[in-house]
Nucleic acid binder design. Structure first.
Lengths: 378, 378
DNA sequence: GCTCAGGCTGCAAAGGTTTGCAGCGAAGAA
DNA sequence: TTCTTCGCTGCAAACCTTTGCAGCCTGAGC
């Protein structure tokens, strides 16, 4: 039995519009009236109905965040960062998980559409065409995928993969496998392209294994294949797969990094806790979350025009910037010299940062980003 | 510029009420009209505005799920299960993370209140009084805490802790530490009480270390304390802390389980991936998520009465059942015989399931639950 | 004494939908 | 033929809030 604005008006003997103003434009109401109204509101436990307010203002002060798999530890830091940034701008974030299901994704966008001012689409599984379509229903910022004409924030996994391969080349590896991610992933394609090029130019052979589900299980399932292929090093689509692979190799009696070197991508918290600690490409997930929120709210205080003409919704601008964030190789204990080379690590695990292990705390903005094949699907 | 019901009505030459019925009560409209309206709607890309609908029906078909820390791997399975169950009942779940902050929690409940039909409060940090207060604003089901008068679902961590201690006693340990969780946690109190009782009745000494933040870092930070205390076994508040502790002990040169045995609680996915694999108390998180949704939606199709009297909202019933779900000890490799006892494990790691490692796939419902100190805060 | 300005408040429309009620026409029953 | 019945559709109120506009009153200036 929540109190409405009418109840407060009745209780304090003023018109509902005065009550409304007491909350949304306090300077317009007489101080005496104001305190009286406030007291009554407090008394009745009145809270403005955000849905009703949204109906007329056209602004909900909510952001939707649609995630492929909330159980993947890659996402929480991104979610937290987005929430923090949103809170800072007086917005709330509603997270929804799609279970890697494109249909669920579309469904959720529609469910959220009228209850949020914009949606962050994170590693979407939908087709680009569909993304473009839903983006006409509600402002969208895409994360981890480039879609022509839409604001996007992606990580420079290409550079990351290149660094990883060069690191392996430097350790003497010449037969390397790439443990592929899910089919149709934009990130996956970027990694593949960059790793292939780097391997080629280093005179190495790159075997692609996949596509695979981006999980521990998906990685572990390829252990046998890795052994059979005779490679001495593996670059995995993400840390989860790398960890699963290490586990699987262990069960086959192969030691990491003595027999096989393994590199992951993402640098999830877990990668520091496994034995051996994982060499990986750190992606700035938190920065991505913050950036995406900023892009969505770019033109924030943009009150809806009354009367003729529709609302100019959040994100409804023509500057569809695309942002690429830098990645960085983090060398830990899962990579070592190629077996039989007689080399040893210089100075023990984690001592050699390598030429590409540069730490860049500041995100680099590139806008517009050089679009790799336009509309490449993730 | 999303199409409204009015646009569709105009396009198809009928009244808006007919359009409305086409979607919400198709059997009431002439098939011919129906297809025409549907065609126009499809054409214009019309989607009913859920906010506006909610305004009048009083039902949003959304559920809010408020989580203390989305980065804690304990929660994702719960979230997924809740989402699955909700989807099954034609509801959507909006997840919100509070960063373990009670104020953020309250804020979020209010933000969600009018946009959802009910809220799942998961491991809340608010005071019980506050929970009771917000529960007057929106139907609430509490998870991982017992609050008198409110529907709750909790795990039987007491039984779990007892099993864990008895397992350690059986291995000969007599000096055991309890690595406490966050201050004011209901779960923490239950564990402490049960572990204390079990240790006492087994003639063992239980040292309580804490409270601590429920993270790897929180666990690792107590490694030195554990060593100094001279205990031979540790029961941790959760797996994350157990894993952090093992890491910390390792850095101090103490081996698990040779020098110290460690038991966690939760059985997160990660506990199977660490070396050594973690002995832990499995909690039925997925079942908890499902159950909580079911409790919230218990009286689901409960249309709002028009005219006099307010809506009888979801969950607005007097049967505030409280549910307790069984836990189960899972013995892996982080526990072993007390050092110097000369005993060895019977049959190697993980071979002895122990008397309490019973697998119970079906959740046991206890209702009402025997209330431990009424209103004990989590 | 009159005008004017300005501060505060009330009025009413609007936003998109649902739904009880009434009305209409056609088919069936008497 | 007349009266019901029934299927379908339209009307208008209601949900809760915001906001442009107009009106009231007080006080100041002339």
């Amino acid at each position: 039995m929540p109190a409405t604005i009418r109840d407060v008006a009745r209780a304090s003997g003023v018109h509902i519009s005065t009550v409304s103003r007491t909350f949304s434009a306090p300077h317009l109401v007489n101080p005496d009236t104001r305190v009286r109204v406030l007291a009554c509101a407090e008394d009745l436990g009145y809270r403005p109905n955000r849905a009703a307010r949204a109906l007329i203002t056209g602004r909900t002060h909510n952001i939707g965040l649609i995630i492929a798999d909330i159980a993947n530890p890659f996402f929480p830091p991104l979610i937290k960062a987005a929430e923090g940034q949103a809170r800072h701008r007086d917005y709330h974030v509603f997270v929804a998980d799609t279970n890697e299901d494109a249909a669920a994704e579309e469904e959720l966008v529609h469910a959220l559409a009228k209850q949020v001012d914009g949606v962050l689409l994170c590693s979407p599984r939908m087709s680009n065409a569909l993304i473009e379509q839903v983006s006409r229903e509600v402002p969208v910022v895409v994360i981890n995928r480039q879609v022509a004409g839409l604001p996007c924030v992606v990580m420079d996994v290409g550079q990351g993969a290149r660094s990883a391969i060069e690191h392996l080349l430097g350790l003497g590896h010449r037969r390397i496998a790439l443990l592929g991610g899910p089919r149709g992933s934009w990130t996956n394609r970027e990694i593949r392209r960059a790793a292939g090029a780097a391997a080629r130019s280093g005179g190495a052979e790159l075997t692609v294994l996949g596509p695979n589900p981006p999980t521990e299980t998906g990685g572990g399932a390829q252990a046998e294949q890795v052994r059979r292929s005779g490679v001495t090093a593996v670059l995995a689509y993400n840390d989860l797969m790398a960890i699963g692979l290490i586990e699987g190799l262990d069960q086959l009696g192969l030691r990491v990094p003595q027999d096989v070197s393994v590199v992951g991508i993402d640098d999830i918290a877990l990668s520091r806790l496994t034995r051996p600690k994982l060499t990986t490409v750190a992606t700035p997930t938190a920065a991505a979350g913050r950036t995406a929120v900023d892009m969505l709210l770019q033109h924030d205080p943009e009150p809806r025009p009354r009367g003729g003409g529709r609302a100019a919704a959040v994100g409804d601008r023509r500057t569809t910037a695309q942002v690429m964030l830098q990645t960085e190789l983090v060398i830990r204990d899962s990579t070592g010299p190629v077996p039989g080379s007689g080399r040893t690590r210089s100075g023990g695990p984690s001592a050699d940062p390598g030429p590409h292990a540069v730490r860049n705390s500041a995100a680099r903005w590139v806008s517009p980003v050089t679009p790799s094949p336009p509309n490449a699907e993730e």
